[in-house]
């Protein structure tokens, strides 16, 4: 299972980096989303995939999954949602001002240096 998770993490990161390196602002936003998915899964895998039940204390359950990575990921999911929504509005505003989503055209001009 860990091997499988490692591979899917790798695929997510590859796709994310490729999207982030593209010119279109929209693809970059998708890239950041994929990047956080990859990071969440990586955190979960790093904590170990052992345990047969969820980390909820109940009668007769002694072997449960590690709760700490889950708590961390929970925070990360919410934060990455905040970031994604902020970039989306930023992209919308940028487009309405510049009429382009091509990052190469939004480099700024040299006179501003």
């Amino acid at each position: 299972m860990e091997l499988l998770m490692a591979i899917v993490i790798g695929v997510l990161f590859t796709a994310a980096v490729y999207l982030i390196l593209s010119r279109s602002l929209l693809r970059i936003i998708f890239g950041t989303g994929l990047l956080s998915h990859g990071a969440h899964l990586l955190l979960l895998t790093m904590g170990g995939l052992g345990g047969t039940s969820p980390p909820v204390l109940a009668e007769g359950i002694t072997d449960y999954a590690d709760p700490l990575p889950q708590a961390l990921i929970l925070t990360a999911i919410v934060i990455s949602f905040g970031v994604t929504s902020f970039i989306l509005v930023l992209a919308y505003k940028t487009y309405s001002k510049h009429q382009t989503d091509n990052m190469d055209l939004m480099r700024g001009n040299d006179e501003h240096d």
Partner: peptide
């Protein structure tokens, strides 16, 4: 490369 590196890190 980044993807492969993460696979290696994860493993």
């Amino acid at each position: 490369s980044v993807g492969v590196l993460f696979v290696l890190i994860a493993l």
